[in-house]
């Protein structure tokens, strides 16, 4: 485990904690896209099928269970929790996320490393993760104002994949191994989708102003 990989995992974990904190502390999920949360739950369920077949380390197993558990818990809260669900911006969260699921699945059927159930679901999860933030970004753009915790959540979620890319570069030079093309391309796409958000995030931070996304 190198420092970039660790930073990636930690920012990912922090993003989830920030989101849970926001929902728990404010009893509100305003500004959060249920569509994106559902996509993430699907991403983790599809990717971590290997929980049943491979053991890597206690760290990996715990992290996988945390990602699956927290994403399902957030979806449950936004759909079922008596108070939290009232604040859901249903009318702004209209992205047709099923198209992302269908598109990622078709792509995984065409572009994968091996034609096995696990490999196809793995590739599907990588493609879907790359675009899973889109409903969230659209929701933020439509609502204009972004509350503090929601802004931090999206920032850490975006930073995580950028750290993974640095980790792949580091591993390429230190282990002479390239990893997978599918991860590299998808990771670059995923990070690029945040470029606009990162720009406004840093500007608001620099100017000590509230984060606002232009319509």
């Amino acid at each position: 485990m190198n420092i970039f990989r660790l930073a990636g995992d930690l920012t990912h974990l922090i993003s989830i904690l920030v989101l849970l904190l926001k929902i728990y502390a404010t009893k509100s999920c305003s500004g959060i896209s249920l569509k994106t949360q559902e996509l993430y739950a699907l991403v983790f369920l599809a990717r971590y099928l290997d929980l049943f077949t491979d053991f890597v380390s206690v760290y990996n197993t715990v992290m996988k269970l945390v990602f699956i558990g927290s994403s399902l818990a957030i979806v449950w809260c936004m759909r079922m929790h008596r108070i939290v669900k009232r604040s859901y911006n249903r009318e702004l969260d209209t992205f047709r996320h099923y198209f992302l699921v269908a598109g990622s699945f078709v792509l995984a059927l065409v572009v994968h490393e091996k034609f096995t159930l696990q490999e196809i679901f793995w590739a599907f999860s990588i493609y879907l993760e790359a675009v899973a933030i889109l409903p969230q970004l659209v929701l933020l753009q439509r609502s204009g104002n972004v509350d503090n915790l929601t802004g931090q959540y999206v920032f850490f979620l975006g930073a995580y994949r950028a750290f993974y890319i640095l980790n792949w570069i580091y591993r390429y030079f230190t282990e002479q191994r390239f990893g997978r093309w599918i991860s590299w391309i998808s990771g670059l796409v995923q990070t690029a989708l945040y470029a606009d958000f990162f720009y406004y995030y840093f500007m608001s931070w620099k100017n000590n102003a509230k984060l606002q996304l232009p319509a």
Binding site: D54, V56, M63, K64, R180, S183
Partner: peptide, 10 residues
């Protein structure tokens, strides 16, 4: 092999 594929990543 799985190792070659960075199977230790999340």
């Amino acid at each position: 092999s799985p190792k070659e594929n960075f199977h230790d990543e999340l």
